[in-house]
Amino acid sequence: MISFSQVSKRYPGGHEALSDVNLQIDKGELIFLTGHSGAGKSTFLKLIAAIERPSHGVVSVSGQNVGRLSRRAVPYLRRNIGLVFQDHKLLFDRNAIENVVLPLDIAGVLRRESMKRARAVLDKVGLLAREKADPVSLSGGEQQRLCIARALVARPALLLADEPTGNLDAGYAADIMAMFRDFHQVGTTLVIATHDDRALAALGGRILHFDHGRVTEAQP
């Protein structure tokens, strides 16, 4: 589903975030990215979602060369990818369910249908009772679950999560990881950047270890 071939990414200013990465991720896999911060995990995820483009090499997602996508084609790639951010990136000018519905609005789904789907996914992350709540009034864990609900509402085949439990205490983090395990079991491909070693041990899955832009396979 995802392949990196001789991929390097050098940011303006000379910092090389990734160097000569070669790897393959199959459909339905559960992947963890580990390593200290600044080792290239975020860059790896950004290259997949075409938020950044590689300086070298080819990143391909479902057969598409993501680095060469035109500006007009990028939105359609992103609609098939769910993104979960460490800082949630929720919109605070609207309530919880309006945040979740946003990807469906963008895709032009009928309002009634999208509200139904938003409620279903809010139910799945345990926030159905808070659908009218202001995101500010939610706890950190609830905000992260809301962000996950938004990432999943369009039923993407691929979910990318950058430190989804980074700001959460252990109890919330375990909840969220359990949620990811459920999605994995229904066939979603998940790529999760984390430094939460407890999660790795609990969930299994393949581990890619990042160190100064180089990637090695690690055994759990």
């Binding site: 992103r78 990136k89 919109l91 963008i106």
Partner: peptide, 16 residues
């Protein structure tokens, strides 16, 4: 700004 950037990240086209 925030709304625009988030919308772009989740697949909004220029026209949207």
């Amino acid at each position: 700004r925030d709304e625009i950037l988030v919308s772009r990240l989740i697949g909004a086209t220029d026209r949207y």
